[in-house]
């Protein structure tokens, strides 16, 4: 077990390093990397000063080594915009985003499991068709548009919810709802599929032959097995939550990684962008390891490998 965790972490770190390297080269593709960091109207002198300061006039290899050295020291440069180390800015932006993502993902899983199981156990009947159609529709709604429409309806028209801000449960409702769209839309179908497969398996047939009720077959026999692919998918969607967070902060001015990243783009702060990619990458890797471990705990066939 421990060997497994270590192995996955190492792979994960390699992956994140790969990510960071890619971003590094991304920043060097254009002829004048400094342009990515400096405001558009910066003077020529500023450019030259910047280039010398950050060694952008050095050969690429040297730059790369300097960069790697920085990464190892966890130094991603200083943010001009934020007036503090880029990594610090990125790390401090994580908590609100994590909170938002965790709540949204948890609620999405609950909703999907309920809807997907209902759909699977009444397969092909009207409820199933309604749920399937509903989940397909939800999966087709762009989150940014949904957020705007909600703002239009709830905040502007009805005046019941705030359009922006961070404190109070009110301010979290629309952001969480927006972030739940894609996961619910996709996971309901996954749950339904996994439940249908579990329900048509041999052990459910056997249990049915032993006279158990449909309800028992669904919730005790099938769900426990369907939980495994559901877990996988939920883990996959975690990375996608950051996407949602970006949109959410753009529209609701919700603090967090989304706001940071969008701000970094608008303010031409590539350091912060790099650091953000690094932090998010690590978070995703850690999450995947946790999901894998949970999978091993949940599925006895995997445990003993």
């Amino acid at each position: 077990m421990r060997k497994f965790v270590v192995r996955r972490l190492v792979t994960g770190i390699v992956t994140v390093l790969g990510v960071v390297v890619i971003v590094f080269f991304l920043g060097r593709i254009t002829g004048s990397p400094a342009a990515l960091y400096l405001p558009e109207n910066a003077s020529q002198e500023r450019y030259e000063q910047f280039n010398t300061e950050y060694g952008l006039d050095q050969p690429l290899l040297v730059q790369f080594l300097r960069f790697l050295g920085g990464v190892v020291r966890l130094d991603f440069g200083d943010s001009i915009w934020q007036q503090r180390p880029a990594l610090e800015a990125a790390l401090s932006a994580m908590p609100p985003t994590l909170g938002l993502a965790a709540i949204a993902l948890a609620l999405s899983v609950i909703v999907s499991v309920v809807l997907g199981s209902l759909a699977a156990s009444r397969r092909f009947k009207s409820l199933d068709r309604a749920i399937t159609f509903g989940s397909l529709t939800i999966a087709s709604i762009p989150d940014f548009w949904f957020a705007l429409v909600c703002v239009l309806f709830f905040a502007i028209y009805l005046g019941v919810l705030p359009t922006s801000g961070y404190d109070g449960v009110d301010a979290w409702i629309l952001p969480v709802a927006t972030m739940m769209l894609a996961p619910v839309g996709v996971m309901t179908q996954v749950v339904r599929g996994a439940m249908i497969e579990a329900l048509s398996s041999g052990y459910v047939q056997n249990a049915r032959a032993l006279g158990f009720s449909q309800r028992r077959l669904v919730y005790r026999h099938a769900l426990r097995n369907a939980a495994l692919p559901i877990l996988s998918v939920a883990g996959d969607r975690a990375a996608g939550m950051v996407n949602g967070a970006i949109i959410v902060s753009a529209i609701f001015a919700f603090p967090g990684m989304g706001a940071l990243v969008v701000g970094a783009v608008l303010n031409r702060d590539f350091f912060v962008l790099q650091a953000s990619v690094f932090v998010v990458g690590i978070a995703v890797v850690l999450l995947n390891v946790i999901v894998d471990l949970t999978y091993a705990v949940a599925d006895p066939r995997v445990r003993l490998d």
Partner: peptide, 23 residues
């Protein structure tokens, strides 16, 4: 597979942001 992992780990929007920021 490592490269695929890398692409898979970064949220697509974030990656797209970064790329389109540059290009």
């Amino acid at each position: 597979m490592r490269i695929a992992d890398i692409l898979h780990t970064i949220p697509s929007l974030l990656l797209a942001l970064a790329v389109l920021y540059v290009l």
